[in-house]
Design a protein around this nucleic acid. Structure first.
Lengths: 135, 135
DNA sequence: ATACATGCAAACATTTTGCTTTGGC
DNA sequence: GCCAAAGCAAAATGTTTGCATGTAT
């Protein structure tokens, strides 16, 4: 993957390697602050991580998720994988929806009928998780 | 509608009336800054609008949308209406998806099978709008 | 050698809160 | 008169940028 990025003008720096390693491990959404706490990134400046994330976003390797309004989440893009999210409005927890997503057809429909390009989507379900509902 | 809110402990203040009037007019998503520019709200303090929005959110009359990651949008809830959004990554424009949404069944499925309560969802399609694609 | 990446610090944009005054009930 | 809402100003939070230094190519 690093090789692929080098084709795109990236340098093989310690920061890039550490960041990709951390993000690929579970390919979950992370905030900038969470990334800076991950093993291998603890010593790195958040500004550095931020700039790497922006570059990876530009080439489509990272996707930005607006899950909460207060912090931005970032997730590594794994080809063939799609994610939808379940967010608890009480505890703020984020998990993935254990149900297949069927919006690909809608996406293609919009591109074809209305002339949009490069569509992708973000789907979040908000509510109260079982644990919070119990208490 | 004001009457309904009074049952919930709201006072019939000028701010509340002006805010509801502005938000109901087109029932579109607005940022706090945009709300403060709307007719009838120009003279009101943003903190006042903010606190009203929070109270309305608490009772389910307003929904928060995390469309961009940098600013939060708020939209009045109109029973029976549901909205999905098309967001241009180039110009930042927000429009509504002119296609019916079929996620209600998924929602019920998640509540039933996994024990979540009070689910609703937010769906955004991101891409490049026809106008930006042309230039 | 050169250009890009990094670290540190500061600038920015928004959201959120404290406190005093005003106004609804 | 009492308690909540409004207005003003400041604090808090998270994102983004400037600049000097280090490093990959």
């Amino acid at each position: 993957m690093i090789e692929e990025l080098r084709q795109l003008g990236f340098r093989r720096t310690g920061g890039l390697v550490d960041l990709l390693t951390a993000m690929v491990r579970h390919h979950l959404p992370y905030t900038l602050a969470e990334l800076a706490e991950l093993p291998g990134l603890k010593e790195r400046d958040q500004a550095t991580i931020y700039r790497l994330i922006m570059k990876l976003k530009d080439v489509g390797k990272v996707r930005q998720l607006n899950l909460t309004g207060r912090v931005i989440h970032y997730q590594i893009v794994v080809p063939g994988h799609h994610h939808d999210y379940l967010i608890c409005e009480t505890c703020g927890g984020v998990s993935e929806v254990p149900v297949a997503c069927t919006l690909g057809t809608v996406e293609r429909q919009i591109m074809k009928r209305f002339g949009w390009k490069g569509l992708h989507h973000e789907l979040e379900f908000y509510g109260v998780c079982p644990a919070c509902a119990a208490s």
